[in-house]
Design a binder for these strands. Structure first.
Length: 272
DNA sequence: AACGGAACCTGAAAGC
DNA sequence: TGCTTTCAGGTTCCGT
């Protein structure tokens, strides 16, 4: 599920659950989320630590403990953090558990990830995966001139370029599709052929679609996952074959960079 | 050096 | 019904 809006929602939840809390026990239930690091070492490092702050950059989370310990979390394709009562049986996809004590209350913050594309990393400094991220469209905003220069230096399709996290951090397949539709740019348009006005429009479109995504998770009860069966909230993602909301012609679907890409062949022109 | 595609995994849904 | 195929919102590695 996670693109920037879902990770932002996860950050808010983790802040509520963990800030000021002490990790009494850390458990890694499937070492594959560590990509080779030692589960035992990680569990020992986290145990006893108190959480100071939770940050997000792009799709990465950084949980800062005291004594300079940093826990980085990437949710991959199916990762999510959930709250569980102590003693609740672990479900199949529960890959890590943090037993937590906060203000005399005890509970479990658990990491679920059926597909195991996510990962946990413990470090004393920022890791390259975090440091090499481009600007976060929500935190930093998107500078049109900078984005134009960066895109102009590449020879790729604009859709694939938007998924490059060193260019912009947090845009994933859905929001790339949505932003290109909003900006009326063909997903297969070459980055070096885009005009400055197009890039400026695209920058605003990215900010718009991400902000709308974040807003969907706001409210008294932050729910991280859309209810099953809830309507698709996107303008064109997942709507291939249906009428374009702007011109009513049927939406097309192609594959770019190995990922499904919906667009409107009438509204989104490759050159202009 | 940069790009396109395969690989890494599981599970839900669609197809037969 | 049950088996098979397809698809999924991410990143990384490998060959060209």
């Amino acid at each position: 599920m996670p693109e920037l809006p879902e990770v932002e929602a996860a950050k808010k939840q983790l802040t509520r659950w963990l800030k000021g809390a002490t990790i009494t026990v850390a458990r890694i239930r499937d070492e594959r989320i560590l990509r080779g690091a030692s589960a035992k070492a990680l569990e020992r490092t986290l145990a006893g630590g108190t959480v100071r702050k939770v940050d997000r950059r792009g799709k990465w989370l950084r949980i800062a403990l005291d004594e300079g310990i940093l826990l980085f979390s990437h949710l991959g394709m199916t990762g999510k953090w959930v709250l569980r009562a102590t003693g609740t049986p672990a479900e199949k996809s529960e890959r890590a558990q943090l037993e937590v004590a906060k203000k005399a209350k005890g509970y479990r913050v658990a990491y679920l990830d059926p597909r195991l594309f996510g990962r946990l990393i413990v470090a004393n400094d920022d890791i390259p995966e975090w440091s090499s991220l481009g600007p976060d469209p929500l935190v930093d905003g998107i500078d049109g001139g900078t984005l134009y220069a960066a895109l102009h230096a590449l020879r790729r399709t604009v859709k694939e370029a938007l998924l490059d996290q060193s260019l912009l951090a947090g845009v994933g397949n859905i929001h790339a599709v949505e932003a290109l539709w909003l900006a009326r740019i063909h997903p297969r348009a070459r980055t070096d052929a885009l005009t400055r006005p197009q890039v400026r429009t695209l920058a605003r479109a990215i900010e718009q679609t991400l902000a709308a995504g974040v807003a969907r998770y706001e409210g008294p009860e932050i729910r991280y996952v859309e209810e099953p069966g809830s309507p698709n909230p996107f303008a064109i993602y997942g709507h291939e074959g249906e009428p374009c909301p702007r011109c009513a012609r049927p939406l097309a679907r192609i594959v770019l960079g190995g990922r499904g890409t919906v667009f409107c062949a009438h509204c989104q022109k490759e050159r202009r």
